[in-house]
Design a protein around this nucleic acid. Structure first.
Length: 273
DNA sequence: CACGAGACCTGTTCGC
DNA sequence: TGCGAACAGGTCTCGT
């Protein structure tokens, strides 16, 4: 479930807590139980568990699709990839299927990293740059402007869909929000990046911010068996709406494959060329 | 440099 | 009903 709005929602809930769920920020880590070694990117399992013990979770944030836990001495980073999730439970609860890591926290609660497909990764590092330095700008950051986006679009000639999915180009977008943003900006997914005008780049940035903000406001999108409580899926304009009418013009939404990703768009509102 | 295919994984849904 | 294929919110690597 993890694009920027979903990760942001998870970070907020862990930081502040939610109805019926205690906050995780501010708690001591009492122990770590790694159930699937390959979920751990670095360091070794032995070093990971000993180094975590007795550190405090000082704060929880997000950069791109990464969750960032600032600890007393280190940083604990999670990437949820396709099916990862972070769940708070009573400490006494038995592990669930697909739990990959369980942290025991003060206050008799557990923080579990659950990840059916095993694509997710965890890092424990003393500085974040080794993991995060390659990420592109944060789309919701005010310092990122239409001029910046226009400039970046013109340093390359790639199709917009795969380019916006490239985390070194812009951080946090995934398959849902790229399709939604391109539809809102009335741009065909195969449009070559350096053909955009400054006005179109401005529209694209505004559309990206609109769909991400709406996603965050709805607590993210919940699809299929991966559920988080968000309801942005009820407001999709094109994503997974193949054959259904475009909300603007009623034309059936088309689906093509771009870079091995399902891509949804309105042939009328987002004409090719 | 840009793109496509394959790999990493498991679970659900679809078509026959 | 059963079974294989297709598909899934991500990213890395390799070959052309």
């Amino acid at each position: 479930m993890p694009e920027l709005p979903e990760v942001e929602t998870i970070a907020r809930v862990l930081r502040q807590g939610a109805p019926g769920q205690p906050a995780v920020a501010g708690r001591h880590i009492l122990g770590a139980r790694l159930l699937w070694d390959r979920s751990l990117a670095t360091p070794s399992p032995a070093e990971f568990t000993t180094r975590l013990e007795q550190q405090v979770i000082e704060d929880i944030g997000r950069r791109g699709k990464f969750l960032t836990f600032r600890l007393s001495r280190d940083w604990l980073l999670f990437h949820l990839r396709m099916s990862g999730d972070l769940v708070v439970r009573p400490l006494a609860t038995a592990p669930e299927p697909h739990d990959r890591l369980i942290l025991a926290l003060e206050g008799d609660i557990a923080l579990a990293f659950n990840d059916a497909r095993k694509f997710g990764r965890v890092w424990l590092v003393d500085e974040v740059d080794s993991v995060l330095s390659g990420l592109g700008p944060e789309p919701l950051d005010d310092s990122f402007t239409a001029d910046d986006l226009f400039g970046r679009l013109h340093t390359t000639r790639r199709q917009l869909k795969p380019l916006l999915l490239d985390q070194t180009f812009i951080a946090g977008l995934g398959n849902i929000y790229v399709d939604e943003a391109l539809n809102l900006a009335r741009l065909h997914p195969l449009t070559i990046s350096n053909s955009l005008t400054l006005d179109q780049a401005g529209d694209l940035l505004a559309s990206i911010r609109t769909v991400l903000s709406d996603g965050i406001r709805r607590n993210g999108a919940s699809i299929d068996w991966v559920y988080r409580g968000g309801d942005f899926q009820n407001y999709f304009r094109v994503y997974q709406r193949t054959g259904l009418p475009c909300p603007e013009c009623g034309t059936p939404i088309a689906r093509i494959t771009v870079g091995q990703r399902g891509t949804h768009y309105c042939p009328h509102c987002q004409p090719w060329e």
